[in-house]
Every structure is written in C-alpha cells, then in structure tokens.
Write a protein that binds this DNA or RNA. Structure first.
Lengths: 349, 349
DNA sequence: ACGTTTTCTTGAAACGCTTCAAATCGTGGA
DNA sequence: TCCACGATTTGAAGCGTTTCAAGAAAACGT
C-alpha cells in the first residue's frame, strides 16, 4: 500500500556517502571522479533504482527532454501512423527523449504549436503532412525552434525527410512496362499537393524516358469512389492496358471500376497503387504498390532533430526510396491462391 | 533573432505590480483576491502571453500533468490508432493534461512502464491490448498508479472500457438471419484472447436464442490467408450460407476463399467482419462490419482516468456498443456501383 | 479616533537537480 | 617535513511554481 517515494538524488548521495553534486557528476560522466567514488555511487543508484526526475532536470536545464508530434486534425484513417510513431518513439528514446503527442483542434495549424510552446513546450518538433508554404514551418523557423519535417520543404535551411514518390512511380511504370504494357494511364490527385505533384512527375518522366507517347492523366480526389468513377473516362480514349495510380485508395477504386465495366484487374488491365496500405494485401487480386519505409522515415526525422539539438550539423534533406511490392494486380494471376508474401495482421487496438 | 525568453510568473508579477504569490492565486482562482488586482494580473498575463511552465509546476506539485500511453510492441498495422489517439489527446487536453507516448521494446510488457515511472513518469496510464491476467494491470495496481484499460479486466476495482464484441456479433447474426440465412458459420480466433472469446460468445448466444441448430465454428489466427484457407473446410460439412467472422482481416480472407471455390461473396454467401477497417470499404463487394467507436472509447478512458486523478468516484467499467455497418457482402448486390456511404479517405501521414 | 475583525497580499521555504566557485585531499618536489 | 598544485569533492545558489504562515490594509463597531 505504502506508495514508496521515488528516490531522489539526495537519497543516493546519502547512501553512497557523498554529496549530491558528486552524484550528479557521476551520472553525467563528468571528469575527475575517483573510481572508488564512482563505483559507490553507481551501486547506490542501482540499489535504489534511482533515475533523475524529468521535471526536476528540466527546470535548471531549460529543456524538456521531450520531442513533440502533432496529430493531424482530420479523422481520415492513417494506416501507417502506428509504424511511424513507434519508430519515432523508439529512436527518440535512444537519445533519452520522450515523445509528447498533441492535436490540432481547429483549422488553424499553427495554434496548437504555439499553445504547447507557451506551456513548457518541447525541445523539438516532428512535423508531417507538409504543404506548400507550410505556416508551421515559418512559425517554428522564425522562433528558432528545432524541427524536422516529413515532407519536402523548399528551403535549404529546413531539415526534412521525404519519400521519393517520383522514383517510386518510375519504378511502377518500369515494372508494368517490363510486363509488356505500352499504353499506360495515370490517376493522380488534384494539383497542389507536394506529394501528388511529385508522384505525377515520376510518371511523366519515366514514360517519356521509355519513349512512350504522352499518356493520359486524370486527377481525382483521394477516394475509392473517385477512382472507381474515373475508369469509364479513362478507358474511353486511350484505352490503356495499365493504370498507375497515385495512391492505393484510388487504385482500389480503379480496380472496382474496372470490374464494373467487365474488365478483370490484373488479368486484363494492370493496376498499381502507392502507400501499400493494409487493404492492398487484403484483396484479391492483391494490389501492386509502393511501400513507404515509414520506419526509416521516423528514425531519420528524429536523428535529424537530435543532431540539431546537440548542435551537430548534418545534411538537411533526405529522400528515401519506397519499395515496389509486386502483387497480382500487375502479374495477371489474379486467382492465385498462394500469396507470395506473408500477410500482415490486423489487430484490435 | 533574439529568441524571447518565455515570460515567467515573476514577469507577470512585476508588470501587474503584485507579488508572485498573488499571480499564482489569481491563476488558480483562489479566493480573496480583490477584483481590481485580479484584473490587473489577467491583463499582464494576457499581454505577456504567460502560461506556467509544465516543468516548474510539476516540481512542487509532485505530478507531471501528463498521461501516458504505451504503443504496442509489434508492428502489426493498427488502423484505428489514429482516431483513438486523437480522441485520447483531445480529451486529455480538455483536462489540461498532455499525452506522453512510449513504446515497448522487448517482450516484457511491464518494463517500459517501470522505466517511465522511474524517470518522472506520468500521472496516469491508458492501457490497451489487455490480455487475461495482464501483468501491467497487476503492476500498476500494486503501486497505486492510476490507469484505465481499453479491454475488460476481471477485477471490479479496475477501471476499464471495452467494446461489446458479443453484442456486436449478435447484431451481425441477427442481421444475416433477417436476410434469410439459417445456416451460419463462425470463423473465430484461437481460444484465449478476451476479445476473441467474447465475440464467439455472441455468436453462440445469438444463434441459440434464434433457435438455430448448433453452427460450425472454426478458429484461425488473425490473418487474411488463414481466413482464405478456412473456407474449403467450412463449406465442406455444414454448407453455411452466411459466414460471420471475428475480424475484417479474416473476413476479407474468407471472401477471397469463397471466390477461390467459385462462390460469390455477398451474392452466394453472406460474410461479415468486425472492426470496420479501411479495407472493408475499399473492396467490392464492401464488407459488412462492426465499427468500434474508438473515439468514444478514447474519451471514456481518459475521463475515467481524470476521475481517478481528482479523486472522484465513477463507475469502473463501461461497455460501448459497436455499430453495424451494412455493405454489399451481406446484401447481395455485389456489383452495385453506387456505394451507400461516403468512403473514408486515406492520407499520407 | 481606536481596537478588532475580516479581507487581501506577500515573503520565503520547498520541490529535485545542475552548476560552479571554493574548499579539501593527496602527492611529488624541495 | 613543508609547500605548491592538480585532482576531487562539496556548499549553496538558482531554475519557475506553489503554498502557507504571517503581515498589511480595509472595514466595522463603538
């Protein structure tokens, strides 16, 4: 019952028969501590299970020993969040940092950051869902607060990590090309998102470089139905044999749309997506897609952040490559009952 | 360039011409502060944009003003995490609490909690993925640390919130029964998980109560392929016309398995899932499923926790009801091109 | 006008840790 | 043996808040 008081540095000092200052020195590996003393202190620490309290450390240090991440405000499902967060937390923990989560409530994207900073804040921020001219970037940069972005930023001073969407799409195009497809189409997002624009760029670049004639491109919002409804238009003019999509959601819609008009995705028309969301492998035929290495991204972001915190310089921007995951939507054997790769599991939270 | 120092309570005191203690009193709404003084202090606070630093508040208070949540250790996709976390963070924020995220690194489920607590900890924990005889529950309870579980715990003293899986499955059974199905089957998880056992219970209860003869039940791990491969056995003996599944992942596998043997899910055999993962609506036919109200759960958990923190008593356990989302997998019009409900969108992180 | 109350304010200690100038130790050279 | 000097260790201040006993001010009754 007696909730034992957490041991303080004073308890350790007394047990080891030294002053609090010495304990602090030992803990911080400061020079000039005699070996015997160091040992006694370590023993005491061990015995008491001592660990400096975050709050007490913060106060004199003027740092919080925490990073912060703002959950996006909308409620759209974000299937990669768990992997991403897990990696962010783990990497941060390696640098003895913890992760504070906060959320955007209103439309204002900057306000939650300002609010958090007023109340003690964090030592640095991980940003995601970067948009062109992102207000948050401007806000944090102006205040000299360390941050790292998941998503490219057009400012050489800003640290960012992004997935090379263009390169990913190029790989998808090359893949279907090697499967013998010559007439491709691209289903993209509306103009104006860094991610969408980048992926489209990959499509035009690669089809050109393969010497294919200009291919048809349609743009829809990121939505299953939008993809589904885009199919009739798409098959109208150019009559493509492969449809490269900007996202899995759209691609799955396209697959449904193909079935609506009596075409078999995978067998009659190849389809590729992007993101490798769980649904891509929970459907038959499985959807060929590009997996974003969210674990890498998470780790790199935190490393970037930590580098800033300890004043190290490091390259500011990094592009990581997505992996092409080939499934039956581009290989044709749609009814294959043997899945090539182990399926991921879905859990209850 | 000059990174303005965050204003402290002393700055406010000076500007308002009062002592720090008075500022503190005003902020905390303590009695006996003259109206004029209160106003002056508020003005100063407003003008300076003052907010007490979390760390400085923590120290004398002996609390951290933070809740903590441990991300599950494995890397299985958890599509509902974002909604859940968002709600947890928002609700916590309403009580002026922030959310600290940490992660399990090794197999030991308790160790990360112990570690976090040693280093300053948190005022309370939100647990998920509760198992029978959960070690974490024992650990925290023993130490008198406030916590609330997402998942039922067989201990009246423990605060928990869970989704009523049995009731959800009963609704699914009733639904397919009303569609005219009499021969049902259940695809469940291996014995031993509170969630899986509960859902199975709903199936046996409801089929019995409907006066149906004992139905066949198979158990598989929570995996697409496992569901897919279970179909042949299932259609062997009892030849069910409706298959109720313990999860969407399994259900999607079952749908694929049905196609493998030439049956049309939705048209020939009805299929239901559980969890309403994004994939359930990103497939054709859409999968009838039970949506867990993760937002409710998140909010309730935090409310439970806050009640403990401020010493209020409140009912310890709450069951929330999942919503049956009917799609074409049980209504037959599998090729319908008009989806009944707006599709959710998938984003890049 | 004066002693009492009652209402407002405030000084200073305490929270646990870091820091740094100053004190103490120990050792080699004279 | 004594002193200087680097190696160790430590006392005490300070980080921003809260708290509470105690002081100051306003209000009251006579």
């Amino acid at each position: 019952m007696s909730t034992h008081r957490r041991p303080t540095i004073r308890d350790v000092a007394e047990l080891a028969g030294v002053s609090m200052a010495t304990v602090s020195n030992v803990v911080h590996g400061h020079a000039h501590v005699r070996e015997g003393t160091r040992q006694r202190v370590f023993d005491a620490i061990e015995k008491l299970g001592y660990r400096a309290s975050r709050a007490a450390k913060s106060l004199p240090a003027g740092r919080t020993f925490m990073l912060a991440y703002c959950l996006p405000g909308d409620t759209a499902p974000n299937s990669a969040l768990d992997v991403f967060l897990h990696q962010v937390v783990s990497t941060a923990s390696d640098a003895d940092l913890e992760l504070l989560l906060f959320a955007q409530k209103r439309a204002d994207r900057v306000q939650p950051y300002a609010e958090l900073l007023r109340g003690g804040g964090a030592d640095g921020f991980v940003l995601s869902e970067i948009e062109y001219e992102d207000k948050r970037v401007a806000y944090l940069k102006e205040r000299n607060i360390p941050f790292a972005c998941f998503g490219r930023v057009d400012d050489p001073a800003v640290h960012w990590v992004d997935v090379d969407g263009a390169s990913g799409i190029r790989a998808a195009v090359e893949h279907v090309y090697l499967q013998g497809h010559q007439r491709l189409a691209f289903v993209g997002w509306p103009n104006g998102s860094p991610t969408g624009d980048d992926r489209l760029l990959g499509f035009t670049e690669e089809t050109e470089s393969l010497g294919l004639e200009p291919q048809s491109v349609v743009r829809v919002i990121n939505d299953f139905d939008a993809g589904r409804k885009a199919v009739p238009n798409l098959m109208d003019g150019s009559d493509p044999t492969a449809i490269v999509c900007v996202s899995d959601t759209v691609a799955l819609g396209v697959m449904a749309g193909l079935r609506d008009i009596g075409a078999a995705p995978g067998a009659d028309v190849a389809v590729t997506g992007f993101d490798d969301i769980p649904a891509a492998s929970l459907t038959a035929p499985g959807l060929t897609s590009l997996r974003q290495p969210m674990d890498q991204v998470g780790a790199l972001l935190v490393q970037r952040l930590v580098a800033q915190l300890i004043g190290q310089s490091a390259p500011n921007s990094i592009l990581v490559q997505p992996d092409l995951i080939v499934r039956e939507s581009t290989t044709g054997n749609g009814a294959a009952s043997a899945e090539p790769e182990p399926h991921t599991r879905e859990r209850n939270l």
